[in-house]
Amino acid sequence: MTISIDTNQRPVMPAPFYQLLAQELINTNPKEANAITLYFRDPDYSPEQGGFHPVEVRLEKQLNQWRLVYVTDFAFHGHDFPDLIKDIDICFNSKQVYSSIGGWIKHDEGAELIELFSDNFTSYHHMDVYQVQIALG
């Protein structure tokens, strides 16, 4: 089944990101679903060892297309008792980008961060560092 993803949304993700999503969703049959959440996890990621940050991607059905709702990159922060928190959050509904260092910024100001994140994420995905789970809602 082909899943049509709206690539005209703001902020704009680079084309390889959409190709990656399409590749992951190729065997998914979301006919009855209104939402899809993809979980990308490096099973070895920990505060002690480091590794590749977990990433969550949410899509929701709107008419005949799937629209991105958010892309969130999580990371451990803190020393004695590290917490897994949002490190980068790209929110398509509010058209804003969040980074744990700079807070919320408008999507046009966050274009470089989006491109850097997307390039790194797609590279890591091609290296097969993630285990991927898909939840239909």
Rank of each mutant, 00 (worst) to 15 (best):
M127C: 10
S94N: 11
F17I: 04
Q62I: 10
V69R: 14
L116S: 11
H107K: 04
A22E: 09
I105E: 14
T37M: 13
D119P: 01
S4C: 02
I36F: 14
L38E: 11
L20W: 01
L20I: 00
Q96C: 12
F76Y: 15
W104T: 02
P14V: 07
A15C: 00
L21P: 03
G51E: 02
D73W: 00
P11Y: 11
G51R: 05
I134C: 13
Y130A: 01
S118Y: 05
E56A: 14
W104H: 10
Q49E: 13
L116F: 04
I3W: 06
D80P: 00
Y98K: 13
R41K: 14
F81S: 02
Q9N: 06
F117H: 06
A22F: 00
I85H: 07
K106G: 09
D73S: 15
R67K: 15
S94A: 12
R58L: 13
M1H: 07
C91A: 13
K86S: 11
Q131Y: 03
N27M: 02
P16I: 04
F117T: 09
Y70V: 01
K106R: 12
D44R: 08
G110S: 13
T72C: 13
Q49H: 07
T28R: 05
D80V: 06
Y45E: 15
I90Q: 01
D87W: 04
N29A: 06
E56S: 14
A111S: 14
E32H: 09
T37Y: 08
F121H: 06
F74C: 01
Q96M: 15
V129E: 07
L21S: 05
I134F: 12
S99R: 11
T122G: 02
V71F: 08
